[in-house]
Simulated scan of single mutants.
Amino acid sequence: MAHFLIILHILTAMLFLGPVTVAVSTFHTRALAAHNGEDNAKGAASTLYKITQAYGNLSILVPLIGFAIMFTNSKFWHEGRFHASILLAVIAWVLLYFVIYPRQKKMMGALGLLEADEQAAETYEVADWDKAKGQLSMFGGIFSLLWVVIAILMMWH
């Protein structure tokens, strides 16, 4: 059972964390380009926003499966690298859900690209687009770096 869960853990990491990391890393550039009048950038920003949302939510399976793996063998409970990985994954999701998602939504709303009900629910405004792009770039980089550190911890013996 442990081998099956490990394979599933690795597959979900590749299939879900890869796309969300790329989307988080590129959304802000396409949103700024859309703000600057590039029509094709609006479609790209919308797609990247949806990828961030969908794959970000699905990627919660990665640490859940990892946590399940810890129950297959007691040796996993005695290795600090697994505990550190879980902590870093929680930090990454807090960053994604409470910092990156809201900032992306604000930019999408300011561009008028949200679903009609979301667009009508609130007034969205971005005062400084370059600053907003820079902040999303920074937070996206931290999010990506956390996953790199987690991957290194998983492979470290």
Rank of each mutant, 00 (worst) to 15 (best):
T123P: 05
Y124F: 14
A151T: 15
H28N: 07
L88W: 03
A110F: 07
M155L: 14
M107R: 02
L95W: 04
A116W: 07
H28S: 10
I7P: 04
L114A: 05
G43V: 11
S25W: 08
A41I: 07
D39K: 01
L11Q: 13
A132D: 01
M107L: 04
Y49S: 13
A120D: 13
A33R: 01
G140H: 05
M107C: 05
K42I: 06
A92T: 09
I6H: 13
L87V: 15
I51P: 00
L5G: 07
L61Y: 04
S85N: 07
L64H: 09
T21N: 08
F143K: 01
F67C: 07
R30T: 11
E122Y: 06
V22G: 08
H83M: 14
I100G: 02
L95R: 05
Y124W: 13
P19S: 04
V20C: 05
V24F: 01
G56Q: 00
E115N: 14
K50S: 15
I91T: 08
E125R: 06
Q104I: 03
H78A: 10
A45V: 04
W147D: 03
A89K: 01
A121F: 06
L111C: 08
I60K: 04
F98K: 15
M14C: 10
D130N: 14
A33S: 11
S137R: 14
A120W: 11
V99S: 09
T52C: 10
A116L: 10
S144D: 09
M154T: 03
G109I: 00
L114T: 02
L95N: 11
K106N: 12
A45G: 04
G43F: 05
L153P: 02
G112R: 12
